[in-house]
């Protein structure tokens, strides 16, 4: 109910101290064989920040997200989350600390229903997931939370459909809903709009705008208008390196960015 007022995925009592950055990367590097996909990236994200990552295909954006969420191990460098070094932690441990993510290539539980997907996401961080001898239907509070998410995302009609049978646009919604089910403090969204129709893009856009302001959000997005509307800060990656970083005005007027990345879009 309070979720309605403050926005999606509101965390109770999320008073984050402003002194510690939400996320700090120090010389973060990832090599795939001879290819340096992420090259010595250093940056710092403040709590509650809305930060967009841009850059051409193959720039290393998804790899950077995979490193932050713990999907793949870093070759070198450090990842500090809420003041704590998490470089060596597995992805499930980072999730427990408050990271959630969506995947660029839809990554859901295809043969389970929309509701089951959400339910599993809701119980993923609770100890309930270890209960073996009670039916899941006994856990009313989890069922309720899953139902809430379902309604918040307008997926009520699709409740009992296997996720593999619903439209791509709805799958992308489930993708975001799953990431919010764990009530994250840091949310990584990898191209949530890609491949959506214009009306679907619009509703996703509204969804993003309604996110709880206390959640720090990193967004990978190609569309300049969406990026500028969403973010306070933008980082442009190119060949694994930070090409430019700054507020949206700084990025918009940066000649290097215009030349390499925006040349086609602007004017």
């Amino acid at each position: 109910m309070t979720e309605k007022q403050t926005g999606f995925g509101h965390r109770k009592g999320s008073n984050v101290e402003n002194t510690v950055p939400c996320l700090a990367l120090e010389n973060l590097t990832k090599d795939f064989g001879g290819l340096r996909a992420v090259a010595k990236i250093t940056l710092s994200i403040q709590p509650g920040e809305r930060h967009v990552f841009m850059g051409p295909n193959g720039a290393g954006k998804t790899t950077l997200f995979n490193l932050i969420s713990g999907e793949i191990p870093a070759t070198d460098g450090r990842i500090v989350l809420f003041g704590r070094d998490v470089t060596q932690l597995a992805s499930y441990q980072r999730a427990a600390l408050g990271i959630a993510r969506t995947f660029q290539i839809t990554n859901l539980l295809p043969n389970l229903t929309v509701f089951e997907n959400l339910l599993l996401a809701c119980e993923a961080l609770s100890r309930t997931k270890f209960v073996m001898l009670w039916p899941v239907s006994r856990y009313g509070h989890l069922l309720e939370r899953a139902q809430h998410l379902l309604n918040d995302f307008g997926l009520g009609e699709l409740r009992d459909e296997p996720v593999k049978n619903i439209s791509y646009g709805d799958q992308r919604k489930v993708e975001v809903a799953l990431s919010l089910a764990t009530r994250p403090r840091l949310l990584l969204l990898d191209e949530p709009m890609a491949g959506l129709s214009s009306s679907e893009t619009h509703s996703m856009d509204l969804l993003l705008k309604k996110l709880d302001p206390a959640i720090t959000v990193l967004l990978i997005e190609h569309d300049m208008d969406v990026a500028l509307a969403f973010a306070e800060k933008i980082t442009v990656l190119h060949q694994g390196q930070v090409l430019a970083q700054g507020t949206k005005d700084e990025i918009r007027t940066n000649p290097m960015v215009q030349e390499i990345y925006l040349g086609v879009d602007v004017e």
């Binding site: 969420s69 713990g70 999907e71 597995a90 992805s91 499930y92 999730a95 427990a96 959630a100 993510r101 995947f103 990554n107 859901l108 539980l109 295809p110 043969n111 389970l112 089951e116 599993l120 996401a121 993923a124 961080l125 997931k129 799953l178 089910a181 764990t182």
Partner: peptide
């Protein structure tokens, strides 16, 4: 069942 469907999804959710 979730792990059967997508292990990477389940671990990124915290399992």
């Amino acid at each position: 069942k979730g792990i059967r469907e997508s292990e990477s999804r389940m671990s990124s959710l915290g399992v």
